[in-house]
């Protein structure tokens, strides 16, 4: 399935956990420091330098190279989304983000915010930074470079970016929750194997 940004609430709400999608349009990177600063500015009533309404936010700290004033993307795999757990519910509510791309899934308060405001979590293969970068056609811009290369906001123009697996959908259905249930089921026999009961 192909999606294009800006994402509508309807398009996002039609996705189901386990679906495979590819993304076209624009994505923004954002990690710990970006979340902190964006929320601080929001609380002071200051506008962000980017518009996140209907946007796809990518938990990613890329390697970018500057040659003759032009940014070139070298590698751009995902970072661990769980680090943003504490800030993401407020972030989704404040800025109207419709898709979060990352790895490892997110905690219940974020899932609740996704259900309420219409946002999905898209899992991309961790570490597969060269393939991810191939889906990025152009580095359109950069903001907050004072945070350092990994923590800055990078604006990417993407084409067939993926494969992305819908990890958490807007009903709160989550592949990660399914896996956790499997693990709980498997655990007694694993513990028996290791003789630690």
């Amino acid at each position: 399935m192909n999606l294009r940004t800006p994402l509508s609430e309807r398009a996002v709400r039609s996705l189901k956990a386990g679906d495979t999608v590819r993304l076209n349009g624009t994505i923004y990177t954002g990690r710990d420091e970006m979340h902190l600063r964006a929320l601080e500015m929001h609380e002071r009533g200051e506008p962000l330098p980017i518009d996140l309404k209907g946007a796809a936010l990518y938990h990613c700290g890329p390697i970018v190279r500057k040659d003759n004033d032009v940014w070139t993307l070298v590698a751009a795999g995902p970072t661990t989304s769980a680090r943003m757990n504490a800030l993401e519910p407020r972030f989704i509510e404040a800025f109207g983000v419709r898709a979060i791309i990352g790895k490892g899934g997110m905690s219940q308060p974020t899932i609740d915010a996704m259900k309420k405001h219409g946002c999905v979590y898209l899992a991309i293969t961790g570490g597969a930074a060269v393939l991810a970068a191939k889906g990025v056609k152009r580095v359109v811009g950069a903001e907050w470079l004072d945070l350092g290369m990994p923590e800055a906001i990078w604006k990417f123009e993407v084409e067939d970016f993926g494969p992305l697996i819908v990890g958490i959908d807007t009903n709160g259905d989550s592949i990660y929750a399914r896996v956790e249930a499997d693990i709980r089921r498997n655990l007694p026999s694993v513990r028996k194997k290791l003789r630690i009961d």
Binding site: T20, C60, G61, P62, I63, V74, A75, A76, G77, T79, T125, G127, A128, A129, V130, L131, A133, K134, P163, I165
Partner: peptide, 23 residues
């Protein structure tokens, strides 16, 4: 799908002499 993507990525990194992971 994850393992295939990983292996494809490893090959692409070696072929193009680019770091396989951004971290």
């Amino acid at each position: 799908t994850q393992l295939r993507t990983i292996l494809e990525n490893v090959r692409a990194a070696a072929d193009t002499s680019v770091p396989m992971c951004q971290d």
